[in-house]
């Protein structure tokens, strides 16, 4: 139960409203350090909205998202930080970030929360290698003396760039794309693009990696590879994962903790085995109450099979 004993992400009373639509309603959950946490739910349940709030692309209407990058987020520390106008504090127990106060690029750059996208967002016209180098923008920017030294050709930039290439090669090796390093990312097959997007996010050395439907559109063999890759990220790289996934094989096999959303509200939260037998989850997915819902579920099922 690491999400209770050692959580790194606290989502508390998160609410997101778009005009009259309540996309996420008073959602609270935690994600454990070193866990693979799955966020599941029928289409339109608000999962991607939660991701967008965590990674700063949306400003939540209400709620707090506390992130303990490298320590325990002590209740009193977080409360103390919330009282101030600051986004970040270095507490005795480690760095704490209030993600809902931070712009998106700082969440990824400083708090080290990386993400991938449902509809892959690679830099299609740049090569595979360039994609991975761009992901190391901030350290390289520093090494180039914020461009000034780099432009003059002095400073440690050359060496740091070589290190960046080494790191890129390491990840290309992990996802079996080293041979295609000099090809345009847009030329890769779909499954490779999905893996490359994960590798690109990993080049930022994230503490928490949010994956939005990483298995969508993959064939069974590729899904198996993905499972292995994700477990490797957790076990060897000590990266905590938060993933949205429709493929129950992936969810049940690899996740340590499952949070179920329906209509923007949390309906279940627990270990995979417990979720599998939770009557509310079954109702939400098989939706017996009314016809509309049953149809939505049928559509959902069709989505899962692909």
């Amino acid at each position: 139960m690491r999400w209770q004993s050692d959580p790194l992400l606290h989502v508390e009373h998160l609410t997101m409203r778009f005009g009259g639509i309540l996309a996420v309603n008073d959602l609270s959950f935690t994600a454990g350090r070193g866990d693979i946490t799955a966020l599941i739910g029928p289409n339109g349940a608000g999962k991607t909205t939660v991701f967008n709030c965590i990674t700063g692309f949306y400003k939540p209407t209400q709620g707090r998202i506390a992130f303990a990058r490298d320590g325990r987020a002590d209740e009193t520390d977080v409360a103390a930080l919330t009282q101030t106008a600051r986004r970040h504090a270095r507490m005795a127990s480690g760095d704490i970030y209030l993600l809902e106060r931070m712009p998106d690029f700082e969440i990824s750059g400083k708090a080290k929360v990386a993400r991938t996208f449902q509809n892959i967002r690679l830099f299609q016209g740049m090569t595979v290698l360039e994609n991975l180098i761009v992901a190391q923008h901030n350290p390289l920017m520093q090494a180039s003396g914020w461009t000034v030294l780099g432009l003059l050709g002095v400073g440690p930039y050359r060496a740091r760039e070589r290190d960046a290439i080494e790191k890129a090669k390491f990840w290309l090796n992990k996802i079996n794309l080293l041979e295609r390093a000099d090809d345009a990312a847009g030329d890769l097959p779909y499954g490779d693009q999905r893996r490359l997007e994960i590798a690109r996010a990993m080049c930022m050395d994230p503490v928490l990696l949010c994956l939005d439907e990483p298995a969508a559109g993959l064939n069974p063999r590729e899904t198996g590879d993905l499972n292995t890759l994700l477990c490797m990220l957790r076990d060897e790289q000590n990266t905590s994962l938060l993933l949205i996934e429709h493929d129950m094989n992936v969810v049940m096999q690899i996740s340590d903790h499952v949070v179920v959303l329906d209509y923007g509200t949390k309906i279940a939260d627990g270990a995979p085995a417990a979720i599998r037998s939770d009557p509310r989850v079954i109702a939400a997915y098989l939706g017996v109450a009314d016809e509309d819902e049953a149809q939505a579920v049928a559509g959902e099922r069709a989505g899962e099979r692909t």
């Binding site: 990674t55 967002r121 761009v134 923008h137």
Partner: peptide, 14 residues
């Protein structure tokens, strides 16, 4: 990268 995809840039700390 910005020309290719601005949102992806923001997700990479740029």
């Amino acid at each position: 990268a910005l020309r290719e995809d601005e949102i992806a840039c923001r997700s990479l700390g740029i």
